[in-house]
């Protein structure tokens, strides 16, 4: 597919994928050396479906993520500083140090939560779309969830209600093949999660999740349908995560063959897209190297920002439970 996109948009697609990759590389290191508490769910290998989908939206469209959501805010355009600070549990983090890796939501780029209970964001995304519809705002909502979430009850309830009310929402299943260590082929009979769309009377589309332009095209059409009042689309991006479910699993689970991982690494979305930028779209190697260097500076600067930020005061544990709950809005 030959895209009809401006050069700066194409380069920005690459830039955002590169940001996610390097941001997570650095996060893995920081986790290893003890700077990041808790668990760390990385999306190495999934960058194309993340960025392709996010860039098919407008900046003020909504997005709901999941436990594996470092990439989603970055794909949607978030600055790296406060994301990294959140991972390092600092007061300057996007959630003030209350959320961490599994809840890395930056509401300033349209996020409505990166929620860590599997499948829990699906009805919430439908609800944001309902709110937008009632407000007549023309915003769409993009909901990222995994193959594992597609077996949750909330998948059924949320998609059914969205379909029934023709809500402006895009359900994007990031099928990376495994729910933690359980293959989707052992928990679902259908060949594709997208096949389930017919049960809700909505379109289901399978797309190569390693091809950013293919994802961009499919999600753009889903967004057009949503804005036109034609209702939701279920998109399934076939993708893969290179690393284990989370960075602190404790022991090797041995659920997949090295050859399988190597086969997917050979289809690395950044390598593939960089080649296409050079070979098919007339970018020079230096254009790409410049982006790589720029991103390197950004992630290093984000890490410095995080390391130089203070930890939250212990008193912060008691704020944000409620707003000013006794106040009565006029």
């Amino acid at each position: 597919m030959k895209p009809n996109l401006p050069r700066d948009v194409l380069l920005d697609m690459y830039r955002r994928m590169r940001r996610i990759r390097r941001f997570e590389d650095i996060a893995v290191e920081a986790h290893k050396n003890g700077e990041i508490p808790g668990s760390l769910h990385t999306s190495h290998g999934q960058e194309a479906e993340i960025v392709g989908a996010c860039m098919a939206l407008l900046p003020d469209d909504y997005m709901v993520g999941n436990h594996r959501s470092h990439g989603h805010p970055i794909g949607k355009g978030a600055k790296l500083d406060r994301l990294m600070a959140e991972l390092l549990a600092r007061s300057t983090g996007v959630c003030g140090g209350k959320g961490g890796s599994m809840h890395l939501a930056d509401f300033s780029v349209g996020s409505l939560g990166e929620t860590s209970i599997v499948g829990s964001g699906i009805p919430v995304a439908a609800g944001a779309a309902l709110g937008a519809k009632l407000q007549g705002s023309n915003k769409v909502t993009l909901c990222f969830f995994g193959d594992g979430a597609s077996n949750e009850g909330t998948f059924h309830e949320g998609i059914n209600m969205a379909a029934n009310w023709k809500l402006p929402v895009i359900f994007l299943c990031e099928n990376n093949g495994y729910a933690v260590a359980t293959p989707i082929t052992s928990t679902a009979v259908v060949a594709n999660i997208a096949d389930r769309a017919s049960g809700y009377g909505i379109p289901g589309v399978v797309v190569d999740g390693q091809d950013i332009l293919a994802v961009y095209a499919v999600v753009s059409e889903a967004a057009r349908r949503a804005r036109a009042g034609e209702g939701p689309t279920l998109v399934e991006a076939k993708t893969y995560r290179y690393l284990d479910h989370a960075a602190n699993m404790g022991r090797r689970l041995n659920y997949r063959e090295l050859a399988e991982i190597e086969a997917w690494r050979a289809k690395d979305p950044l390598t593939l897209f960089a080649s296409r930028l050079r070979d098919e779209m007339g970018f020079k190697p230096l254009d790409i190297e410049d982006v790589d260097e720029e991103v390197e500076r950004e992630v290093q600067s984000a890490l410095d920002f995080a390391r130089n930020s203070p930890f939250p005061d212990a008193a912060g544990a008691f704020t944000d439970v409620f707003g000013d709950r006794l106040a009565l809005t006029a």
Partner: peptide
């Protein structure tokens, strides 16, 4: 669909309803 309608309410509330 109790989980569904609650989740929809949460999402709608987050965007200002």
């Amino acid at each position: 669909a109790e989980a569904g309608m609650t989740g929809l309410a949460v999402g709608a509330a987050m965007v200002g309803m």
